[in-house]
Amino acid sequence: MQLQLHNINKLLTKRLAEHTRQPINLALFNKELNTLAANINKCLKDEENLRIEALREEKHFKEMISNISHDLRTPLTAIKGYQQLMEKGVLTSEQRYKLQVAEKHADELGVLIEHFFEYAYLLNAEPELKLEKINLTNLVTECIAESIAVFEENNLEVRIIEALPVFAKASKEAVIRIVQNLIRNCVQHSAGNVEVQVLAEKNAVISFKNSVKNSNEIDINHIFDRFYTADKARSKTTGLGLSIVRLLAEEMGGSTNASLQAGVLDIRVELPLQNSLA
């Protein structure tokens, strides 16, 4: 019996280490041990079926998001086209005002659809990112500088904390998309000025800090989950911006985390650190 228990543990360890599907087999006829082995095999089979079903549902979800993003683009393009035709015509001041309101909402819808499209692309295409040594400090600073007008339009000030250059092994295009999404998140949800810092710890870190309204409504443990929004009643976002940030960071071997203290939200993106002399 001791030998059979040893073999059971050995097989289970092998399954965990090598991700095999080998069932538990016994050489000794013992009612209790055979019942134990049968129950273990049943649990393993049920777990495998649940995993396969989860993968099937995830694949279906990805396809659904991709189809929705494509289907929404076509009518929106037509709407904007007709709005442009109307704008060229003779309109009263009231009609022109109503048209401008409609155009504003169409533009907001366009941004939401682009988020859907980008998220669907990242989930389905699984692009191979070209990782190289980049000056993370300079790249983040350039992205912030290009977005100064956006901050000013929303009455926000952005402060970049100066430090020594930090180098990371990452994709330049992916980092730009990450920073753009972090900027968009600040513009949409910040209740005060924004503080940006790039620093070197165990990893290269991009930190965005800003005060937020109704901080008690924010679930910090789910802030990177897809479709998560703190205020579901009034939110104009898809809740995909920070999910895209997490996806891109993980594809580069990095990670994301967030903290909320005294009404200040700190979103951090960690990327593999690259020695400046390498």
Rank of each mutant, 00 (worst) to 15 (best):
E201K: 04
A278Y: 09
S147K: 09
F61G: 11
K98N: 11
L136V: 01
H189L: 13
E63S: 10
G254H: 05
G81V: 03
I52Y: 13
A145F: 11
G110R: 07
A278I: 06
L164R: 15
I24R: 06
L277G: 07
N49E: 15
E132P: 02
N185C: 00
L273E: 01
Q4K: 00
K14A: 14
E103F: 09
A37V: 05
D225V: 08
K202T: 03
R51S: 12
F117Q: 11
T229M: 12
Y97A: 13
N49W: 13
K88I: 09
R268Y: 07
I178Y: 03
I65Q: 15
L248K: 07
L271Q: 00
A120S: 14
E118F: 12
Q188P: 06
H189F: 10
N9K: 12
P23G: 08
L5Y: 03
G110A: 07
N7I: 01
S93G: 07
I267D: 02
L33R: 09
K130A: 05
N210T: 05
T238S: 15
A17W: 09
S259I: 01
V264G: 09
E132I: 03
G241D: 03
A78D: 06
N41G: 04
D231M: 02
N193K: 03
P75Q: 08
E18V: 11
V175L: 01
A191Y: 08
R21M: 14
V212T: 01
I183V: 01
E201G: 04
P75I: 08
F116C: 14
L50E: 14
R21F: 14
E153F: 13
S69Y: 07
R21H: 14
V198M: 03
G253N: 04
Q95M: 03
S276H: 02
F208H: 00
H19V: 14
I68Q: 15
Q180F: 06
K202S: 07
H6G: 05
E162T: 07
L91Q: 07
S207R: 04
I218L: 13
I220R: 05
E114Y: 11
R159G: 07
K98V: 10
I148F: 04
A27P: 02
A17Y: 06
A17Q: 11
A17H: 10
L199G: 02
L85E: 12
L265E: 06
K14F: 11
V194W: 09
A168Q: 06
L16T: 10
S66F: 15
I223Y: 01
K202N: 08
E108D: 12
A258I: 01
S211I: 03
K88P: 01
T74Y: 11
P127F: 10
I40M: 04
T92M: 02
R234S: 13
E53A: 14
S276G: 01
D46S: 14
S215D: 08
I267T: 04
N181K: 04
A38Q: 08
Q95P: 00
R73L: 13
E118Q: 14
K104V: 09
N135H: 00
P165A: 02
N135P: 00
A168I: 06
